[in-house]
């Protein structure tokens, strides 16, 4: 618990970051940039877990552990996504979303 900071303020911060991530995910035209937005979203969610745990149920540590899991999964996800992106780049020499619409047809 942070002295003098209520849960509302922290939640406001994380929610804002979350929607910034959403904004980025929707507007970006590059796969890497989209991944970066996803990192933002994941981080805001992780903070939420921790904050709720700390402020409301200090005796437990589930939120804490979940945050660790989130970080672990994010690491795995990023590694895989980047591997895919690299492979893709080898195939079509681009990581722009507009070049990846061939599935549509």
């Amino acid at each position: 618990m942070i002295e003098g900071v209520s849960i509302y303020e922290i939640l406001t911060l994380t929610t804002t970051v979350f929607f910034i991530g959403v904004y980025g995910f929707v507007t970006r035209k590059n796969l890497m940039a989209m991944l970066i937005s996803i990192e933002l979203i994941l981080n805001s969610a992780a903070i939420n877990f921790v904050v709720v745990n700390k402020y409301l149920f200090p005796a437990k540590m589930d939120g804490d552990i979940f945050s660790i899991f989130i970080i672990a999964i994010a690491a795995g996800e990023t590694a895989l996504a980047l591997a895919i992106i690299i492979n893709l780049y080898r195939l079509i020499m681009s990581v722009k979303t507009k070049d990846l619409e061939t599935m549509k047809h």
């Binding site: 995910f25 970006r28 989209m34 979303t97 549509k104």
Partner: peptide
């Protein structure tokens, strides 16, 4: 139904 994940994400959100 554009087939773009980003559009779908937007509708979803």
């Amino acid at each position: 139904q554009s087939g773009r994940v980003q559009d779908y994400a937007m509708y979803f959100v």
